[in-house]
Simulated assay, not measured.
Amino acid sequence: MEELRCQARIRQENRSEAAPLTVRPADRVKALHAYTSLLADLRQRGHGGVLEIDSNIPVAKGHASSTSDILASALLCVSEACPDIPEAAAHALALSVARRLEYGDYLLHPGIAACAQRSQRLITAYHTDLRWTIVGVDEGGYVHTEDFHREVPEDPGKAEVYAQLFDELDEALRADDGPAAARIATRSAELHNDRLPKKSLSDLTALQRDFGAHGICVAHSGTLAGLIFSRYQSDHDERIAGCRAALDARGYTGSTFTLKEARRP
C-alpha cells in the first residue's frame, strides 16, 4: 500500500528573481495562489522560479488533494519566510490562506480530526487505535468540491440527524469503539446517497454481510466508497483477500487503504 503524500518545493531553474513564479503541474493554481497570497500577507518580496507540487494523491476523488496542495504550499512559504516560527503559528498562517480558497479538511493533525469544513477550523483532534483497513472502490469520474456544493443544495431537514451522528461518532472515537464508529459511517453513507449516489452501495452492503465488515464509508464529495475492516479481527487478512476477490468478480477494481491515526501519548 502506497502512502498518499504531497510535498511542495521551489525550483529556481536559472530564472531571474524578477520573473513571475509559476506552478507545475500547471493546473495546481490554488497551490500557487496560496503561496503568493501568503507571501504578500507576510510582506515578503516574491521571486521567480517554479512551485513544484509533488503529489500522488488522486484529484477530485475525495482524498482532499487540493487542500493538501494548498497547505503544502502555504507551509513551504511560511518555512522560507519565517524559518524559526513555532509550528502552531505556522499552521495558523497556512490555514488562514487555505480557508480563503476553498472548503477543506483539517489535515495538520496526524490522525483523525473533526473540523468545520467551510472554515477548516479544527473541532477535535482524536488519538485512536482503531486499526482500520478500508477496501475501497473508485466509481470513476470526478467530483469537484466547489461545484458540488454550489450545484447540489444542502438538506436542512437532515441537519439534526447529522448533529446526532456527530455526537455519537465523537463518543465512539474517544472510546476507541471501532465497530460503533463504522456503524455511524454506514448511516452517514446511507443518508448522503440521495445527494451523491454511489452505485456500488448495494453491492457493498451485500459484501459487508458476506465478509463481516464493520461498516461502509463513502467520500461525501468524491467518487470513493469502501468497506471498513479492522486488524483486530483475527482473520483480517483472509477477509480482505476475499472481499477484494469478490469486488473483482463484480467488476470493481479494489484498493486497500489504512487509516491514518495518531495514537494516544
Rank of each mutant, 00 (worst) to 15 (best):
I184W: 05
K158Q: 13
A182T: 00
K260A: 07
V218R: 00
S200N: 06
Y162M: 03
R9N: 05
A90L: 01
E238W: 08
D54R: 12
V78E: 02
H192M: 06
D129K: 08
R11Q: 12
I228M: 00
Q12E: 03
V143T: 12
A249D: 15
G140I: 12
D129S: 11
A219Y: 11
L101K: 11
C6W: 12
Y103S: 15
Y103V: 14
L51R: 15
A89Y: 00
A262L: 09
L204Q: 15
S200R: 05
R28N: 09
A98W: 01
I216A: 05
R264S: 03
G141C: 01
R43P: 06
I184A: 07
I57Y: 08
V143Y: 14
Q7T: 05
Y126F: 10
S96Q: 09
G242R: 10
H192N: 11
G215K: 08
S119E: 04
L107E: 01
S16G: 08
S255T: 14
A89R: 03
D167Q: 02
A94G: 13
I53W: 12
Y252V: 08
F229Y: 09
L122Y: 00
T205F: 06
R131V: 08
A18C: 06
P20I: 09
A19L: 14
R121P: 00
G140V: 12
N56A: 12
E3Y: 02
S221I: 06
T223F: 11
E238C: 13
S37C: 10
D27W: 15
C82R: 09
H127R: 09
H47F: 15
L42A: 07
E52F: 05
R250D: 08
L224M: 13
A19G: 11
H63Y: 14
L93M: 03
I53E: 08
A159K: 06
G49C: 14
P110H: 04
P25M: 04
D237Y: 07
L101R: 03
L259R: 02
A40M: 11
H220W: 11
S96V: 05
D27Q: 15
A159D: 04
R11T: 07
D138Q: 07
E87Q: 04
L191E: 13
P110S: 08
E80D: 05
P83H: 00
D210G: 12
D54I: 10
P153Y: 10
A72R: 10
G104H: 03
Q7W: 02
S234V: 15
H109E: 00
K198C: 11
E238I: 14
C77Y: 13
F166H: 01
R195Q: 08
P83I: 00
P110D: 13
D84W: 01
I123L: 13
D84K: 02
S221K: 06
R131T: 10
L169N: 04
S234R: 14
D41C: 07
C6G: 10
L196E: 10
